Amino acid sequence: FCSEVHVGHVGHEIRTCTGPRSGLRNAMHVWTNGKVVDVVGFPLCFHLDDRAKKPRVVHDERSTVKRLPAIVELCIQAGLDLPKYPTMRRTRPVHSIEGRIVEFDDDSASNNDIRDEVSMDLPGSECLDSEELTGDITELSIKILESWFIMKNGAEELMKKFSVQTCGYCPEVQVGPKGHKVRMCKAAKHQFRDGLHAWQEATIEDIIGMNYVWHVRDRDGPALRNELKRYYGKAPAVVELCVQAGAPIPDEFRSMMRLDVVSPDRDEVDLVA
């Protein structure tokens, strides 16, 4: 009924459900098996084939312009070349005259040279072959966690040089100098904005869905109780999944997981102030 995710053999009993008819269930969750997109998500954005001349997508182009994960678009604008998503690259500066972008030199020939230089092989299934996937689960979880941190830290460095915008009301993101003008916002007070987004500077969590979940210290223990939720910590779902599989706890999320807090037993709840 809601977007809550829990990593464990049994769902928790913390009453945080805000989905339909949650009041009839006392905000209790109805758990089902999750998918990969529930652990880590990548929001989509519009592809810009020429970020200098046409930095914005208008509403009438919403069906013709391709959409792709925002982190992929960030890499494309940083130099990655994908044949499916062509983009214009320049070696000469462009000029803005009365709000119009003007090129005095033809840069089409040099664009092909740049494309040949930045073309690279994308990491695919060869990163983790079938033997590694069927090997030690602890070693696999360590590799997954390391790859996730490489992606996260690399995206943070790219965001320092390339602008990423996010809506202040909904999760929509757009990689580029400006946000698009597609009227697709359905968040609070969107009628007063005619469906337009309220763009602001994005953070790393806007292009890589962290999806924080409750940390389970004992995966074979009982379900997390609602009365003890103030003693539980949280972590991104992919981090919690890898930690439960045997990976060491990252120092970056150690304090967030509240490992230094000892939760009382069930019969001690009433004795704790």
Rank of each mutant, 00 (worst) to 15 (best):
V5H: 00
G8C: 06
C17H: 02
T18C: 00
P20E: 03
R21F: 06
S22G: 09
G23D: 12
G23K: 14
G23E: 14
L24E: 13
L24P: 04
M28A: 14
M28P: 03
T32F: 01
D50V: 10
A52W: 13
K53W: 00
K53G: 04
K54T: 15
R56P: 00
R56D: 07
E61D: 14
S63E: 13
S63V: 02
T64W: 05
T64F: 12
R67W: 00
V72K: 12
E73K: 05
L80Y: 12
R89H: 13
R89T: 10
R90S: 05
V94N: 14
I97P: 02
I101D: 10
I101S: 11
A109L: 14
S110C: 10
N112Q: 12
I114W: 07
E117Q: 12
V118T: 15
P123Y: 08
G124Q: 04
G124D: 01
S125L: 09
E126M: 07
S130M: 09
G135L: 04
G135A: 07
L140Q: 07
S141Q: 11
I144P: 01
I144M: 15
S147T: 08
M151Y: 02
K152M: 10
K152Q: 11
G154R: 06
M159F: 08
C167I: 08
C167A: 06
V175H: 05
V175Q: 08
G176C: 06
P177H: 06
K178N: 11
G179W: 04
V182S: 03
M184K: 12
A188C: 05
K189P: 00
F192V: 12
L196I: 00
H197G: 11
W199S: 04
G209D: 05
V213E: 01
W214L: 13
H215S: 12
D218T: 01
D218N: 15
G221P: 09
A223T: 09
L224G: 04
R225F: 09
E227F: 05
L228N: 03
Y231G: 00
P236S: 08
V239A: 06
E240L: 02
L241K: 01
L241A: 15
Q244F: 01
Q244V: 03
P248I: 08
S255E: 15
R258Q: 14
L259D: 03
V262R: 15
S263K: 10
S263M: 12
P264A: 07
R266C: 13
D267C: 08
E268D: 15
E268L: 11
